[in-house]
Design a protein around this nucleic acid. Sequence first.
DNA 1: ACGATCAATAAGCCATGACTTATTGAGTTG
DNA 2: CAACTCAATAAGTCATGGCTTATTGATCGT
Lengths: 105, 105
Amino acid sequence: MLSEDRVFRALADPSRRAIFERLTKGEAAVRDLIPRAGISQPAVSQHLAVLREAGLVAERREGRLVYYRVRPKGLRPLVDWLVHYQAFWVDRVDQLRALLKEMDK
Amino acid sequence: MLSEDRVFRALADPSRRAIFERLTKGEAAVRDLIPRAGISQPAVSQHLAVLREAGLVAERREGRLVYYRVRPKGLRPLVDWLVHYQAFWVDRVDQLRALLKEMDK
DNA sequence: ACGATCAATAAGCCATGACTTATTGAGTTG
DNA sequence: CAACTCAATAAGTCATGGCTTATTGATCGT
């Protein structure tokens, strides 16, 4: 219920979405996220904090490096929300079918 | 691509999500949305404008009343975004299967 | 131990956005 | 036509949020 709020909010920012999307390609240390982000290191850390509090990413410390990775279950509230209002995208059934077929491979 | 931005932004606000969710129960005139919203009429109209620009709702004028309804396809960017990062909620396959089964009824 | 690197936190700035009240305009009714 | 209703727009206020620079704390290499 309220968890969807943090998730929606976290993903509302383009910079944050970009970071999240980058992490879907694989775990990455903060320092590796900075160059592409186009913002300062603290800004990146702040975005990561928001994503973490939303449950969308998890961290792993290794020495002085901090690696972040996507937390798949973090998207659950979003999926649940969509499923709850499924009646309004039922016409997407075909796409979902295709997706499932793809997943089965 | 960037359309997802407007959608995420539009749904990031709780008041706006509440209005959207209300509309999923059926078309409604602006005046009928005001009491539950707990905010002023202009505020409601502004939220509706944001939802409309995001493609999430459509309007229909009838006399001096303006009826708003959910635009199912407006959620498309959101679904597409999730599908694009499907690798991270593949474990939701079962839920999607159940959903499809439900849809088939 | 010393200096450098990494990342989080602190503090402050400024743009954005969610609200308000006031107004406008269109539509309806008496 | 006059009074009223409905909804959008205008204009202004205030809180939030995304950014910055500065700093801290921790870890690493020499």
